[in-house]
Amino acid sequence: MAYFLGLVLALAAFWLGMSGHNTPLILSLGGISVLATSILAYRLDIIDREGSPYVRLVGFLLYFPWLAKEIVKANLTVIRACVKADLDIAPALVKVKTICKSDLAKVTFANSITLTPGTVTVEIEGDKLLVHGLYEQDSQPEAFVEMDLRSARAIDGKGAAA
């Protein structure tokens, strides 16, 4: 029920952010569309912890600034590789083991790796990730330990990363 309410609130906020009209007719139409979307989501059976992950929003918001810093750092490396006159890259495939337990934490970790330029998650099998990196020296398994720890802490809570 809490997930359902969270979905309704998120949809209503999204609708208000998009519309900008405040006449009763438009508002009631918006309410109807929010309800219809919620009912469709209920029938699809996707209202669960993954469908509306608002409980971990605080942890994720704390995680995001660190991720943004990493993205900026990695961007500089890849931009340098793109504009350098002679092509100087050393691609590598590495296997990374994750400590994330739940699927949501794994998705966060894999998406963080992919979002950082220079590394792409190619495959997830159990708790092992196959990562393709642009520079061999930058994409050793040790380089992902901190991101792993932080995403596990952000999504699974403090106990998971002990």
């Binding site: 890849v78 931009i79 793109c82 792409v120």
Partner: peptide, 28 residues
């Protein structure tokens, strides 16, 4: 930066490395 990412997509040798260049466009 989008232009730089495009140049990377054109220059890099294979699909996986091109993905890295495309992700510059997508993020920064």
């Amino acid at each position: 930066l989008c232009l730089v990412g495009t140049v990377g997509v054109l220059r890099f040798p294979d699909i996986y490395t091109r993905l890295h260049a495309a992700s510059i466009t997508d993020t920064s």
